[in-house]
Design a protein around this nucleic acid. Structure first.
Lengths: 110, 110
DNA sequence: TAGGTACATTGCAATATTACGATGATAGAT
DNA sequence: ATCTATCATCGTAATATTGCAATGTACCTA
């Protein structure tokens, strides 16, 4: 059926899944890494950087924007994208909270 | 066309995407959280815990296992699953490495 | 106004994911 | 050997994702 049964899970689990899905494509990882490296805000010369069509890049940018990871501001006729600082930290904390839950159980695990 | 052009990206970007994809479904997040909470190793009573069919749970478990996040060992006629410690730490480090790359650029961003 | 640049959106084809019933496979109990 | 419990796999239907050409929109320039 291809449809995720989101109602079976709590909001935190769904949020984690949505955020993870944003990173679940190498193109979006590459876009985020590029924005991190450039630090200053960059417009869509990602098209020449990555080897994908303009429409495809635009689509990936929108997905990242929808999740709030990046934000764009109009810069004349082009658009500057950059990491959303507060959202970035929030996601980082959310992931850390998950990964910190692991308690090493020695070798008596499985 | 529905197929990801993995050859356009480096192995690290692809790895990050693959790992993220494992967490990109609330059921898999819930499974991981359950294993974290239970600490000790748990078999497939996830079927009653989550509201999904046995076949569906099994499928999600396999995806988590394929990425190496969890591992299972036969326990009589049932199977004990648990977090894979080394892989868990490795993923944690990989994500931290990404999230630490963010340098706050003050307010002169975008 | 007309033309060009930079993105976004639409529409479509190909492939992937999600979910589950039905069916296998294996281990323990009778 | 037969039954049952537990889990994996297969097959299939419904939906989502990926990618791009074509088109739309907004802005700048001449």
């Amino acid at each position: 059926m291809g449809i995720t049964k989101t109602d079976l899970f709590d909001s935190k689990q769904n949020e984690l899944a949505i955020v993870s899905k944003a990173f679940a494509h190498p193109a979006r990882v590459a876009i985020v890494q590029y924005l991190l490296k450039a630090n200053a805000c960059i417009n869509g010369d990602l098209v020449s950087e990555l080897g994908l069509a303009q429409a495809t890049i635009s689509q990936h940018l929108r997905e990242l924007k929808d999740v709030g990871i990046i934000q764009g501001s109009i810069e004349g006729s082009s658009i500057s994208y950059c990491i959303n600082p507060s959202r970035w930290l929030q996601i980082r904390n959310m992931l850390n909270e998950l990964f910190d839950q692991y308690k090493d159980c020695g070798d008596n695990c499985c």
